[in-house]
């Protein structure tokens, strides 16, 4: 589902001849090579490929956590390579939600407080926060676990709290690096269904990295990376049964 806006307005992420190399001892390792991609608002796309193919590296740059060695990456109208660390943090704080392989909830805080945290960074009033956190926990079906601490939650529940934390501020973009790698099949499906629902209802753009077949089934666009290059980029109709 597309959410209004003109053509250029609907481009959320674009990369042009993106290159990222790493120094490893004396030699150079090319993690990304001439990656040119465009992601539009409301996409549900996945980066797939074997280990070491550059999925995380690309998500890192799109997420303004890293900068390209050459080429450009434009995220929500901002040129990633030109952002100061502070500006990058501000952009992440306002517009980008992260979901990690290992849920990474803040340990001493309840589910509710974990979801509330991004809103505190944005300086929202407590009434606004309460409304948004309650909504977000409902979206992921955990309204009744608001008071639970991460240690009291199962892996699937933890990841759903992490999803709520990523989407609570209604970001334009959610990046998820292998979100199901630590989950069993049933929980993986629940997570994916949750995200599909949020993508549909909120119009949020989702970009995954994965080599999990269960995830691939839900994708509407599948980008295959091989040795840091885009080997294939296909639209597909998701099979969500």
């Amino acid at each position: 589902m597309k959410n209004g806006g003109g053509v250029e307005d609907s481009v959320v992420v674009s990369t042009d001849k993106l290159v990222r190399t790493f120094r490893v001892g004396r030699s150079e390792l090319v993690a990304l090579k001439d990656v040119s991609l465009e992601f539009h608002r409301g996409e549900f796309a996945g980066l797939v490929g074997p280990s070491g193919s550059g999925k995380t590296t690309l998500l890192n740059i799109i997420g303004t956590l890293d900068t390209p060695t050459s080429g450009t990456a434009t995220v929500l109208g901002e040129r990633v390579e030109k952002l100061s660390p502070g500006q990058a943090a501000a952009l992440r704080s306002r517009q980008i939600g992260f979901i990690f392989q290992t849920f990474n909830l803040l340990p001493v805080y309840s589910a509710y407080e974990n979801v509330e945290f991004p809103l505190l960074l944005l300086g929202l009033s407590s009434a606004e926060r309460r409304k948004k956190v309650t909504d977000a926990l409902e979206w992921v079906g955990l309204a009744d676990r608001a008071k639970s601490k991460p240690t009291q939650l199962s892996g699937g529940e933890s990841q759903r709290v992490a999803i709520a934390r990523a989407v609570v501020k209604r970001p334009e973009l959610v990046l998820a690096d292998e979100p199901t790698a630590n989950l069993d099949a049933e929980n993986s499906h629940k997570i994916l269904q949750t995200m599909v629902g949020l993508n549909r209802d909120l119009g949020t753009t989702f970009i995954f990295s994965t080599h999990d077949e269960k995830v691939i089934r839900y994708l509407r666009r599948k980008i295959s990376l091989v040795d840091g290059k885009v080997a294939n980029d296909e639209a597909r109709s998701p099979n969500t049964d």
Binding site: G63, L65, P85, G86, A89, A90, L91, R92, S93, R94, I96, F98, F100, N104, L106, F117, P118, L121, R165
Partner: peptide
Amino acid sequence: GVRLAIGESKH
């Protein structure tokens, strides 16, 4: 790390 990733500044 999570706090930095979520967008809290280092300062």
